[in-house]
Design a protein around this nucleic acid. Structure first.
Lengths: 206, 206
DNA sequence: ACCAAATGGCTAATCTGATTAGCTATAGAC
DNA sequence: GTCTATAGCTAATCAGATTAGCCATTTGGT
């Protein structure tokens, strides 16, 4: 009988698809194996265990999320970049509940964990969104963290089903992004003093 | 040998204290039992299982969170209420990682789940914070959802350890709250038209 | 104080799902 | 064509949640 031809990537993608359907908390080696037409122990030839698998899903998710945002803001800047980037992130999360939850639950295993690179890619995308606004360098980091907080907060609620069955959430989301946009423009206007532009080191500091 | 004298509440509180120390993902009947000086199966006389226990922790957490916010904004309004309420929520989450994570993971079991009441108490507190700002009734719901998103987003990141070891997070937090505050005042100023004040039904709609 | 029903806590057994051990056959290198 | 590395299998092990059933403590009525 021929082999299934699995790889770590294959397994991870199958698992990601699975959790998007049944929810991250339902992740189980059995279900993944079944979906791949393979017996459970076979998976251990490709991933070291369930924890590792969840971790890989998280990395996949963050990279895909980063890609989605990057594609959405291609060349745009300021208001438009913010709106499109935010929407991109939102739809990504809506379509991939499970893997975003996985990313949510994942914890980096060390300083050179690929998960960190993936996270940084996302953060860099957000930073790119902010570029259009001429924000006081001293406030860059705060603005970036706020953006992260808002987008992650929204995604997190969406994933958890926090916004029950309300139909007008779309409106609320765009309202919120508008709100942020206006505020950022204010921030630009008021602080005309240009401090020594200490680059707000994106990366581990987030 | 005398009895331990446990109750559902006792068990829940012990479990909540436990997860605050070791993390919600480490919750286990064995650990809870050990902490109470009792054998594992004994717990089942008070809670129906681990799921039920986690659910109870969530309810406890949300009620305590609501209390903390309520106490913090006593009588205050507007900017000050926002600042104090937000800080209260923040410190609560910082001091109770585990139980907030539990609340985060919990899903209501039905329409009359006490968890919903608890959540509503929190939402009501947030709504109270917004009262000071004379916000256009049509935008109330959006502002409320934004507030929820921001506070939950922040809490969620704090719980997950998302903000690594950065020391200046306190600054970022207050900056963010200021940002929201300014924006809300703008919102007030611009929309002077008073629509029929359709009360933005707090509750299940969030 | 005494007794009976109710029930809290225990031990032992069960179940589920992850993980490990060890075997065999396939796939690719030569 | 053979030879090695290894993907996938079955069977066994383990960990942790849950259940069954026993017994002693409580508690409420007398």
């Amino acid at each position: 009988m021929p082999r299934a031809g699995l790889t770590a990537a294959t397994v991870t993608e199958a698992a990601a698809a699975l959790v998007d359907e049944v929810g991250f908390d339902q992740l189980g080696m059995g279900l993944v194996a079944e979906r791949l037409g393979v017996r459970t122990p076979s998976l251990y030839k490709h991933v070291t265990g369930q924890t590792d698998l969840a971790h890989r899903i998280a990395i996949l998710a963050m990279n895909q999320c980063a890609d989605a945002i990057r594609d959405a803001i291609q060349g745009r800047a300021g208001t438009e970049a913010l709106a499109r980037g935010a929407q991109a992130m939102r739809t990504f999360v809506k379509d991939h509940h499970g893997r975003y939850a996985a990313a949510n639950a994942a914890r980096p295993t060390g300083p050179d964990d690929p998960l960190i690179d993936a996270l940084n890619r996302v953060v860099d995308s957000w930073a790119a969104m902010l570029h259009g606004y001429r924000i006081d360098p001293d406030q860059q980091i705060h603005a970036l963290r706020m953006l992260r907080t808002v987008l992650h907060g929204y995604a997190s609620l969406e994933v958890a089903g926090g916004f029950q069955f309300a139909t007008d959430i779309d409106d609320s989301f765009t309202w919120m992004i508008d709100f942020i946009d206006h505020g950022l423009q204010e921030t630009t206007a008021t602080s005309t003093n240009s401090a020594p532009s200490r680059r707000a080191a994106p990366g581990v500091t987030l």
